[in-house]
Design a binder for these strands. Structure first.
Length: 283
DNA sequence: CATAAAACCTGTTGGC
DNA sequence: TGCCAACAGGTTTTAT
């Protein structure tokens, strides 16, 4: 489900119910997702107050007042659903747990946050807040696309020696963090770069164009509340809308959106993932 | 080291 | 309607 825009949308949805709230109960309904949970995770979460929620790449990080940070990754199919709480005079009840509801957190404000993940590629872990960046899952990440570290000079240096195709390179979280299959396709279309193009063969002007294109596509997607394909929901249950703005993703066989272009969008497979692109507009 | 393929899971979809 | 293959938003691990 989630690339950076979806994760950011989920974070923003969780913020009003989780920030400053205390976890009154942690129901860990199975021992693992992608990896085993810390065996005492429930005890370490219970009674903790959430001081803040931030995002690093596709990870949500909840800073606790216990000196620990709760790390959350949604994998391919993970969702965070809010229930309960009080809006005005109206009190909402909690629904019974459903299939694939793996972790249920209750808060002192009456709200409940449920982690649901059918494919279980998601993850949760607890780490020391002071050394969070050293966590094995975080230390391998490249710069945030919106950060100052990510710029034309940096990208040019990273691409200079790579023989891999641009599609693979932009999916590589060590180069820039947060992009996934959908948004890489959209970014390459917007910049007119072929997904098959070897990274080292990019022209400087294309490298220069990539930096703002990455930021623009991600910003627009966040603005739209992410993309809803199969199961992405904002934390409040609303749908994202950016899927209506896809220019190539999922459009195999359709006409290219450029009116002066007569080509059809093609789908190819690159390192096991589907790539959608216009063979005429992207060179 | 760089790159590609396989692996982890379950659910949905489309073709026959 | 039923069955089965293909595919799905990710990322680590294993192989080449």
């Amino acid at each position: 489900m989630p690339e950076l825009p979806e994760v950011e949308t989920v974070r923003r949805g969780l913020l009003p119910v989780m920030e400053r709230a205390v976890i009154t109960k942690a129901d860990i309904r199975r021992p693992d997702l992608r990896w085993p949970f810390p065996p005492d995770m429930a005890a370490r979460l219970t009674g903790a107050r959430i001081l803040g929620l931030r995002r690093r790449s596709k990870y949500i990080l909840a800073n606790l007042d216990t000196g620990e940070t709760l790390l959350i990754h949604l994998g391919m199919s993970g969702r965070m659903l809010i229930s309960g709480g009080t809006v005005g005079d109206f009190h909402f009840n909690h629904p019974a747990p459903e299939k694939h509801d793996h972790v249920v957190l209750d808060f002192d404000n009456g709200a409940r946050v449920t982690f649901n993940d059918p494919r279980r590629f998601g993850a949760m872990d607890l780490l020391n807040t002071d050394t969070a960046e050293e966590h094995k899952l975080l230390k391998v990440l490249g710069p945030e696309p919106f950060g100052n570290e990510f710029n034309e000079t940096y990208l040019a240096e990273k691409l200079a020696t790579k023989t891999a195709p641009m599609k693979s390179v932009l999916l590589d979280q060590r180069i820039v963090a947060g992009l996934g299959n959908i948004y890489v396709c959209e970014i390459l279309f917007r910049t007119g770069i072929s997904p098959r193009k070897q990274a080292k063969k990019l022209r400087q002007r294309d490298i220069a164009a990539l930096v703002p294109a990455i930021r623009d596509v991600l910003s627009e997607a966040i603005e739209a509340g992410g993309s809803t394909l199969k199961d992405h929901r904002q934390a409040d249950g609303d749908l994202g809308y950016f899927q209506h703005s896809f220019k190539v993703y999922g459009r195999e066989g359709e006409s290219c959106v450029n009116t002066e272009c007569n080509a059809k969008i093609e789908r190819i497979s690159q390192s096991g993932r589907s790539t959608f692109y216009c063979p005429t507009c992207q060179r």
